[in-house]
Structure formats: structure tokens, C-alpha cells
Amino acid sequence: MAYPLSRLGVLVKAAPEKDADGYLRETKKTGMIEKDLGTGDYAVMLFAGGTPVSAYILKDGGAKTLSTSEFTAFPSKSAGEVRVIDLSDVAGRLARLAFESRQVARAAIQDAEDWRRHIERWQRENWSGLVEVSSPGLYGMALFWRGGAQKADMIFSNEGGILTETFGFESPNGFPWEVSAFAFDESDPAYQCAALRYAVVDWTNMILARYQELVGHKLLETLEQELNRQIQPWEWKIALGRAAITDSHFFIHPKDAETAYRALFMSMGMLMDIVIGSALTRRLLKETFDLLNPADIRLLTSLRLIPAAFSE
């Protein structure tokens, strides 16, 4: 991969160059410390919520894992070449996935029609992977899951900074693009976190929709507000609203994510129990669970994130 990943975040000018990691730790921020090695290579260290995640050396278009001490030992071209980049959690976890994934294809996209054909092929193939888009005016990453581009895991930037709602992924412009496709490594924690997240998001969305059907939007809002309130002290970037869950949190270990989701489902089950009773809650959880993708069912079952665990 060419290294413009820093374009997914914001350069922190106020960060002290000599204590860059101290800055990220103290401010509990997700971000990246970047060292320009002066050879066209870079060493980077990722942080999630102020906690170091992993370090990499980016060399010859690929990324290799480094230990923290190896990263620290790498001298930068000059003292001024250590940079701190603030990343959103979504950008942070995409960057980690990119570092941990293997490039499987590279293509030059000439126009929107060409891009549409690529998207259709990924949809047809039910492909899961990461797509890196690069052009002089645009850089970004998008996660594809079972053939679909995931809006919750997509980030793009141009000269003006990070794009939010303004970027139309499916009707873009500014061609030609360089596009690289990366395949996930299933043993990688970043991938495991993503797989778990998608299973949980799908199940939660189904639960919330079915609950709304049963009790209406007001009680659904009450449930969502209460869960959001209970999530708050944990400082997880997980929010519920309009019968959907948004999980923008950068969990470092799958175990951390599992713990969070377990607590979330437990609280959800308990609150639903009070309104619709335990038998119907169990039924609702089971019905929606059975509708999940078989791979998601296997994954959630292996972690005991199952209906029986969340209803009395």
C-alpha cells in the first residue's frame, strides 16, 4: 500500500513531538504516531482511545508488525518528522484492518461506469474485504461485508479534509482512481472484531425492529434512550436510535467487544422483559437470531451470545 493513511485523520499540531504517545494516552484519543524514516518507508503506531494497539513498518507497499520497543527504536528522519494524527475510531479500525490485510487486487478505475462494474462484481461474489481508493484529490477506505459497502465503515478525505455526508460512494467523480482490494486474515483480531460487530449489529437491528412492531416507537425510544444512558459511563462509541445500532467504537481485542455486546444484550433483554414479559422476549430474541446469516449464528453461538443468555 502506498502510505497516505494519515490522510484519514487530522494532524495534531499541538502534540509534543518528543512525547507523542503521552499525548494520545493522556487525551485518551484514537490516533496514530507516524515516523518518516527518510527512505520512503514509514513506521506507525496505532492507538485506540489512548491505548497502544500495534505498530507497523510500511515498506514496499506492505505492512509488517513491529513490537512497541522496535517502533520506539526506529529513528525518524529528523525530530520534526514524528507526527501525531488524530483519527476517528472508524478510521482507526479501518487503518488497522488495512495494515493486517493482504492486497489481492489493484486496478485503475477510469470512470463511474467502471467503478459501478467493480461494485457489482463484489456484490455478486458476496465479497468481504477492504477497498482503498486513491487519487490526487481523494483518498479513502471502505469496508465491504458480504458484498455490500458498509456506510458505517467508510472514510474518505480530500484536500479540504475528512468527507462526511458529502461523498457519494456510489456516484462518485474525480477519476481516474487507483483502487486496491485487501482480503482479510480471519485469524486477525481486527477482522474478528469486525465480524463480531456485523453479527451484533444485524441481530440488534432485527431485535429493535421487531420490538418496535410489538410496542410502537415510543417504547422503542425509551429502550434506546435507557441503553444509551447505560452505555455512557463505559465511553463506548455505541449508540442506539431509530431502531438501529451504530457501533463506531474501536475495540482492540475481540474479547473487549464481546464483553460490551454481552452487557448490552443483557440490559436490552431485561428492559424488554419488563414490558413484554420474559417468554415473549425470549421468543423475540430467538426468532430474530434464527434469521441471522448462518456464519453469524455460528460466531455468536461460539461466544455464548445467544437468546437464552439474555432473557430470564
Binding site: 410502537g216 415510543k218 417504547l219 425510544e221 425509551t222 434512550q225 435507557e226 441503553l227 444512558r229 447505560q230 452505555i231 455512557q232 459511563p233 463505559w234 454481552r262 452487557a263 448490552l264 444484550f265 443483557m266 440490559s267 436490552m268 433483554g269 431485561m270 428492559l271 422483559d273 419488563i274 414490558v275
Partner: peptide, 24 residues
Amino acid sequence: FILRYGMESGLLKPARESGLAKRG
């Protein structure tokens, strides 16, 4: 009351704190 005031009605309190609340 539950529909109108939600959690503020005081009628939706779980019998015991668990999940997010317990750990919170």
C-alpha cells in the same frame, strides 16, 4: 405512564441491576 414518561415514570426499573447498569 410508561408510554408518556418512559423510564422517568419509575415503572420500568428492573428488579436487579445487571448488564450495562450493574457494571456502570
